[in-house]
Design a protein around this nucleic acid. Structure first.
Lengths: 193, 193
DNA sequence: TTGACTACATGAGGCTGCCTCAGCTTAACT
DNA sequence: AGTTAAGCTGAGGCAGCCTCATGTAGTCAA
């Protein structure tokens, strides 16, 4: 059967629609930051001063709302990969990974959504995740070709590490940025040789 | 204020109670395995052939049910730590970590619950998690004293890595055991020197 | 064996959150 | 000014959570 393309939210043409779209998105970002990806949609709507039906008009599913709320961040990440590519391959990879960990864990629950989206085309965030995957794979290959990273590491495994670090960051106390340290440990290893 | 001790489920004295307790636990394990830690409690009850009130009588909170469903596994883990301690310190640590990753990710959502329980005393699983923490810390110190593991790794960081690997395992396709590979990468490191 | 005690079982019902849809409003274009 | 369709609304159906008043039956002592 044909792959069903997921609905991706679009900023409406009409002025009132655009206004509400923006307000809802702002409320959603605030709620996600406070509560995580399973924040109450009815709360978000009322916080935005809008009826629940209006929220659903613009964002028919929770996944669509999450995608819209995180789109900018992931686009930035992809853009940064290009910029880093000019520098030392290993530095490029590690810096980009640090950025990636931050972007994929901006609120509780995001990493899980993005991880699923990475391999599921029926998901709004899939396009962004696939782009991320390409960037990561390119930077990885460059670092491997330069002999700076173990050759047996696959891109999928790289993303396993990345999402794992993101998950730690997501679930650690706000002050202690465990994500960065964990990423460092992953890169350097724990066992002495 | 005094720390509120969490309710921990106990197998009842009366025969009918014990029967239901066991049946509910079996249904819960099956449901958690299939759906994850947020499986419907009403489904679990009806699967066990019991009214919802009966489930709540034995397991007043979801956390209590999860704790009861995973108690054996975590106890085993603690017991194994003692057995491993006699062998080579690095082998002991790595083998125990492999076991730990498996035990803390027996179903979707468990790692998150246990991670929170590790540092929150008001949680049914806290006792088990604290015991786990002690075991891990002991094995880590032994491996560090033997000069086999980097000295700047703290026990908390060890558990960050452990839960991260568990999360990956939890969220990867059943066939591909990504957890083991990710743990290996964490221990060995990714960057060549 | 019987009676009493009390642990245990039941399920309707109140609550919250999800999501839909029929009817109304209004921006935008001619 | 009229028309049109994009947009807005919120009641209502559904599912899951959890409680509690009421009913049932194991257990134990006499």
């Amino acid at each position: 059967m044909a792959a069903t393309t997921p609905y991706i939210a679009q900023r409406p043409k009409r002025a009132d629609g655009r206004r509400n779209y923006d307000t809802i998105l702002a409320a959603a970002r605030k709620a996600f930051a406070a509560t995580g990806s399973d924040a109450s949609l009815e709360d978000i709507a009322s916080q935005a001063g809008v009826a629940i039906g209006t929220l659903y008009r613009h964002f028919p599913t929770r996944a669509a709302l999450v995608e819209a709320a995180t789109r900018d961040g992931l686009d930035t990440l992809v853009a940064e990969a290009g910029a880093y590519a000019a520098t030392d391959p290993l530095d490029a990879l590690t810096h980009w990974m640090e950025q990636a960990v931050a972007h994929i864990s901006t609120f509780r629950g995001l990493v899980g959504i993005l991880t699923e989206a990475m391999y599921d085309e029926g998901t709004p965030s899939h396009v962004a995740c696939a782009a991320m995957h390409r960037c990561g794979a390119d930077l990885l290959r460059a670092a491997q070709d330069a002999g700076r990273v173990r050759a047996d590491l696959t891109p999928d495994e790289l993303f396993d590490l990345l999402t794992a670090a993101g998950w730690v960051r997501e679930n650690s106390a706000p002050g202690r940025d465990a994500g960065t340290r964990v990423l460092q440990l992953m890169l350097e290893g724990v066992v002495l040789r």
